[in-house]
Design a protein around this nucleic acid. Sequence first.
DNA 1: CCATATACCTGGCAGC
DNA 2: TGCTGCCAGGTATATG
Length: 271
Amino acid sequence: MPELPEVEVTRLSFAHRIAGARITGVRLGKPLRWPLGCAPLSLVGRHVLGVRRRGKYLLIDLDQGILLWHLGMSGSLRFSRELGPPEVHDHFDLDTTQGRLRLNDPRRFGAVVYAASEDSEEAVKLLGHLGVEPLNGEFDLDVFHQGLRQRKTAIKQVLLGGALVVGVGNIYASEALFMSGIRPTVRAHRLSRPRAEKLRQAIIDVLSRAVQKGGSTLRDFSSADGQQGYFQLEAHVYDRANQPCRVCGTSIRRLQQGQRSTFYCAKCQKP
DNA sequence: CCATATACCTGGCAGC
DNA sequence: TGCTGCCAGGTATATG
């Protein structure tokens, strides 16, 4: 579920409400992808300074240390004073003086990891290799194009890899490639500078637009205040196999790349 | 260094 | 109904 827009929408939906809170308790459910990395009780008494995002990770800054949250494929957060007893897929509760932050994650590919600082070994292992943020002005064409020139893999796979630019997952990779008129199978190093610029702009546009629309709710995503997303209603290609292209009417195709589905329009997107 | 496959886990759905 | 197989928003890790 959660790509950059869903993670950012989640952040925006509770960051201001949890800032300043004091942690009063922690509850662990079934194991997540990684262990927490500290004694749960040791978090009690610490204060939440704020919530940032790096790629698809949420960083909850504490007065001592950081909590890294990842939503995996099926995770979502809820923040409220009203949350009752945990249900089957509620696997982490952070209780604070301003409400309870709860991770619901049926597939448990998500995680909550404590790191002493952003420079700590645990944090660097998860964040250290990530590419640039697409939405904060750091996404430079020259650097992007140079990076593309060094990869012979299909452009779709390069985008998913996150080493050049973060936050683009399976939905938005297909959408950005549609918007820039690039076939997902084109090998990255063959993209001209003008095409790289079209792609860069499409990534920025599609991710920004998706944040505005509250993300994509394909099955169960909602932000921390329970709001659903609506971007999926304006998707041009994702999950639209055999349906007509919204621009030219050609039947949208689906193919497999690296064990993931890709969708594209063979007429609008050039090799 | 790059490229590809694998693993993790649960639930929904189509087809029989 | 109930079973089976396939599919699903991610990414660290192992292997070539």
